[in-house]
Design a protein around this nucleic acid. Sequence first.
RNA 1: GCGAAAGUGGCGGAAUGGUAGACGCGCUGGUCUUAGGAACCAGUGGCUCCGGCCGUGGGGGUUCGAAUCCCCCCUUUCGCACCA
Length: 832
Amino acid sequence: MSDQHHASGGYDPAEVERKWQARWDEQGTNRWTDAGLRAAERPYYNLMMFPYPSAEGLHVGNIYAFTGADIHGRFKRLQGYDVFQPIGFDAFGIHSENFALKLGIHPMELIPRNVERFRTQLRRVGLMYDWDHTVDTTTPDYYRWTQWIFLQLYQHGLAVKKEAPVNWCPSCNTVLANEQVIAGECERCGSVVEMRFLSQWFFRITEYAGKLLENLGWMDWSDSTRKAQENWIGRSEGAELHFPIARRRAAEDRHQPAAIEPEKPVIRVFTTRPDTVFGATYLVLAPEHPLVERITAPERREAVEAYRRQVAGQDLVTRKKTDKGKTGVDTGGRAVNPATGEEIPVWIADYVLMEYGTGAIMAVPGHDQRDFEFATQFGLPVVRVVAGPGEDADTPLAEAYTDNQAGRLVSSGRFDGLGHRAGCDAIVAWLAERGLAERRVNYRLHDWTISRQRYWGPPIPVLYCDACGIVPVPEDQLPVELPHIDDFRPDASGISPLARHEEWYRVDCPACGGRARRETDVSDTFLDSAWYFLRYPSVGYAQVPFDPELTRRWLPVTSYIGGNEHAVLHLLYARFVTMALRDMGHLHFEEPFVRFRAHGLIVREGAKMSKSRGNVVVPDDFIAAWGADAFRTFLMFLGPYEEGGDFRDEGVSGPYHFLTRLWDAVLTSTERPLDPAVEQKLHATIKKVTEDLEALSYNTAIAAMMEYLNAVRAGGRTPERGAVEPLVRLVAPFAPHLAEELWERLGHARSLFDEAEWPGYDPAKAVADTVEFVVQVNGKVRARLPLRRGIGEAEARDAALGDENVRRWLDGGKQVRKVVFVPDRLVNLVVG
RNA sequence: GCGAAAGUGGCGGAAUGGUAGACGCGCUGGUCUUAGGAACCAGUGGCUCCGGCCGUGGGGGUUCGAAUCCCCCCUUUCGCACCA
C-alpha cells in the first residue's frame, strides 16, 4: 500500500480529507449552540452506542458501527432534518481499570490519554459529531448525576441493599461478572472462581419486568434484539402452590392422609404445570432455602450440611451446567401434597435455584424431564397423571411425558379428562378455595447488582451511620468524588480499595452529626451508560442532569444504532432507568429508544477477529493507504449492514476505484443536456439510493451508484455535468470529504451539508419507456423482447407469438391453453 | 434442550412468487508500457452434439412459473440455557 494508487486523475484522499476535516473543525460544522438546540424545528436525535476508550485505539468494529450511523445522520441532514449527533466515552469500569493495572498507569492518567486518541481517530474517519456536546462518564460533572440517579432510585425504594452470591476470583482478588467467568474459570487468569456472599446494592429492575416486556410489542426494534430481550425477561405464567410441612410421625402412619393445619408453615413452590399436582411425588428445595434448617430431620442433618457446604463452594457457572448429572440429598423432612393429601419427601438439590421463583419446586417426575432424571437416579416414585392419545393411567413412562397440547389428566380425581389449560384453571381454583394456591406470573429477570468492589467507578453515594443506619448523601453534596489513590489494586478482602482509606470514608453523619462511614463500593459501569443519552443535549448545565425544555424537544431518541452484544444489558438497563425516572416525574416518556437497529459483525477472511488469531484489522493503516472515504464505503459495501460482512483486504480497491472514477467523471464532465437514457437511469438511481438509505441497505445503495456511474461513463463517453452533480450528493453520506471537495469544485462556496438538498426524483422518469419482456413457454424463458412500457396483454401476446424462436416451441399443433400476463415484465404461454 | 438467523459462482454478496448470479473482488485475454503496477477495453456458473440442457444444502409438495411459499431432513452461526 503506497501512494501509487493515487496516480490517476489527481484524487489524493489524504489531502482532501485533511483539508475538510480542518475546515469542519474551524467552521464548527455539525455543532449546535444551546440556542440552536432549543430552536430546532425538525429535531432528529441520531444516537449511536458510545465506545469504551480502550488503550488499543479505535477498533474496526467501532468504525463499522459509527460509519453506518453517521451515514444515516448525514442522509437525514441532507433531507433537511436538524440532526443532533453526539458522541462520548464510556470510560469507567473494570475493563479500563484492568488495563491500567496491566500497564501500571493510574487510570486518571491513562483514560484521558485514551480519550484523546479516540477523539483524533474519530475525526480521522470523518464522523459528523457535535464535539461541543460530548460526555465522559469519568468526569465529576457527569457522575455527579449518575449518583443522583442512584439516590432517586433509593428514595423510591428501587435501590436496596441485600446479601447475594457473587463470583470471586481468588487470584485477581475481585468480583467477576457472570460474563467474565468461562466454564467456571476466570477469563483473565484461569483460576477456578469461587462463590462468595457479599452485601450488595441491587436495583429492583424486576419491578418493571412486565412493562419492559409489554413495550417490546410496539417498539420499532430489530427483531433479533427484541427476541433476545424477551428471552432474557422470560415471562412464565403459572401458580404458586403451598405444600404444608408435615408433622413428624412414625413411618407406619404415613400412608394415612395427613391433616392440613392452616397455621403450620408451608413450602411455597412455583410451577407452570399446576395441572400435574396430583403427580408431585416429592419436593426439592434450593440448598440455600431458609426452610431447610427447619425441616431437616436430626438423623439427616450431617448429610444435609455436607451437601450445602459442597454447593456453597461451587462457582455459579459450574453449578448451572446441565450436563454434569443430578445431585441432591433427602432432608428427612416431609410435606403434604395439597391435592392428594399424601405425605411426600423433601429433598435439596443444586438444580433448584434460590433466585428463581420461590427457590423450591414440586417434582413431577412423570411430566418433567429433570424431575424424571432425578427420581430415576434416587429411586423416587414416578406417577403418571397425564395421558397422551392412546395412553391411559397405566401406560408406563420411559421418560417424562411433557406434551401439554394432546395430554389429558388421569389419576387426578374429579379433574380426570381435562386438558392442560382447563386442568390448570380448575385445580388452581380448587386449591385456592383452601388458601393453598394463587395464580402467579414469574420472570426470569433478576434484580440488577450494581455494587462493584473496585476502584474505577462512581462511589455509591450513601453513608452508614452508627446511629441512623443507611443515610443517602444529600443531593447538594454531590458528587461524592472518587479520590486519587495510588493503591487502587483490588485485594482478597472482598471490599473495595477505597475501604483502605479511612481519611476518605470516615465522615460525619449529615443527619445526626455522629460517626459515619461512606459506602466504599462503586457502581457498575452499566449505570453510567444507562442515562448518557439524556445528558448529551444538556451538556454544560451544571445544576440539572437534563434540562426539561431541551429534553422535551430532543427526546426520546429518534434513531439508535448499536451492537446486539448489548441487547440484554445496556438496552435493558437504559429502559429501566428511563421508566423509573418517568414514574418519578422527571421524564415525559417511558421508552428512550423508540427505533433501534442492530448492526452486524465484521469478520475477517471468514474468521472472527481476535488478537490471538492475529487477524485484527488496524484501521489506521487502511485509512492511511486508501483514505477514510474509501474505507467507509468499503465497510458499508461488505454486506447488509444489519448482518455484518467479511473483511477481505483486497476488496477495498473496488470502492476506492469507484471513488476515483467518480472524481474523474465529475472533473471532466461538461455542461450539456442530459441524454434521455442517462436521465432515466439517474432518476431510477436516486429512487433506489433514497429507499436503500432509509432501510440501512447500504451495500445495495453503493452498488446502485456504481452501476449508474458505469452507465454514465459507458464506452468512455464524457459525462454530462447534470448527470454527475446529483451523484456527488448521493455519495456524500458515504464519502463526505470527497463529496465536499467535488461540491466546491463544482462552484459552491458553502459546505455541501449546509447548502445541498438531497436529490429528488420523478417517479415517472425513473422508469424506461421500453422494457425487456420475458416470453416463457410453459414457464421456460424462450425469448426476450423489447416492448413499449404499459403495453396491454393482447398486444404483448401477439408480439410473443410473432417471435420466431417462440413459434418453434409452439410447433406441432400445440394449443395455447392459457396466457399469463405480468404487466411490463412477462408473458407466459401455457400450451398443452 | 429452547429461541433466532442463515445455507446461491473461485470469494463477498444481489434478487422475497415472474430474466438467478446485480455490484464488487479475483481470474483470463487485449491496449498502453523498457518492465512491474496503475488505467482502459472485452470476457468470466457448469455441461453442450451450439438446438439447448442443468443449476440457489438434500428430499417432497403447491403454482402457468419457486432461491423466494408449505412439509420433512442435513449443516452452520449467534443468543439463552437445570428458569420449574
